[in-house]
């Protein structure tokens, strides 16, 4: 069923982008929640907890996301009695991966605050959590906000890999359209434009935030 690439295809691609959006949102929020807890572990004064969090980051950032996706895919389908939808598999893998970035960003932001701030908060009788909640976090957020927005871009781009485990988001939709229209250049260009529409504004926002807050030392983050 060979046919021309038409407006219907564009509409289909844009419609599939809602799944890119949904998955990105789940992974970003999920990654943020897990990342938040793990950041606490990462800066804990209890060493084994720190080591665990460090190892967690090391493994998730030291191995390809694609491999993580496949491993989760096969583990969840082979080891679980119920069959999970591809969205669930993708959400789990991407949330965990995103959380590792979140930990690094937020740990970096917290460590950028001088030690003396912790000490002076302690000196007025605050508990460790209170120090973090009232003194450190409000300052660290200023530093961490721009790279956190940058993380959203990373997550959105990463959702494209779920096409390879069969989740139909915009990249997979592109494969399908290109398969029937034989217009891969056009199809994937439209797909790329859809990602650009999501990511570019976020990148610009991230850059603005960085400049506005006049933060020189944001944690190193790329890709």
């Amino acid at each position: 069923m060979l046919r021309e690439f038409g407006m219907g295809d564009v509409y289909y691609l844009v419609a599939s982008a809602r799944w890119t959006f949904v998955l990105s949102l789940i992974a970003f929020v999920g990654g943020g929640l897990i990342g938040g807890l793990m950041t606490l572990a990462r800066i804990s004064r209890f060493a084994p907890l720190r080591w665990f969090a460090a190892g967690y980051v090391e493994v998730l950032q030291g191995t390809p996301l694609l491999m993580q996706l496949f491993l989760w895919f096969f583990m969840l389908t082979l080891l679980l009695p119920v069959e999970l939808p591809a969205l669930a598999v993708a959400a789990i893998a991407l949330s965990l991966n995103a959380s590792s970035f979140a930990i690094e960003i937020w740990r970096g932001s917290i460590e950028a605050i001088p030690k003396t701030q912790w000490e002076s908060a302690a000196s007025i009788g605050m508990s460790r959590l209170q120090q973090l909640r009232y003194i450190i976090a409000p300052q660290a957020i200023r530093i961490g906000i721009a790279p956190t927005v940058g993380l959203a871009v990373i997550v959105i781009k990463a959702t494209s890999l779920t096409a390879l485990i069969g989740f139909v988001e915009v990249t997979r939709a592109g494969q399908l359209v290109s398969g029937v229209t034989f217009q891969p250049l056009l199809t994937y260009s439209v797909v790329a434009l859809i990602y650009l529409a999501f990511c570019w504004p976020l990148s610009i926002l991230s850059r603005r935030l960085e400049q506005n807050l006049d933060v020189n030392r944001t944690p190193e983050l790329s890709q």
């Binding site: 871009v153 781009k157 990463a158 959702t159 494209s160 890999l161 096409a163 390879l164 990249t171 592109g174 494969q175 290109s178 891969p184 250049l185 994937y188 260009s189 797909v191 790329a192 990602y195 650009l196 990511c199 570019w200 990148s203």
Partner: peptide, 13 residues
């Protein structure tokens, strides 16, 4: 353009 689109899509193109 490169940083705001997925590597996989670039490869496909």
């Amino acid at each position: 353009i490169i940083r705001n689109t997925p590597f996989l899509v670039q490869l496909f193109i």
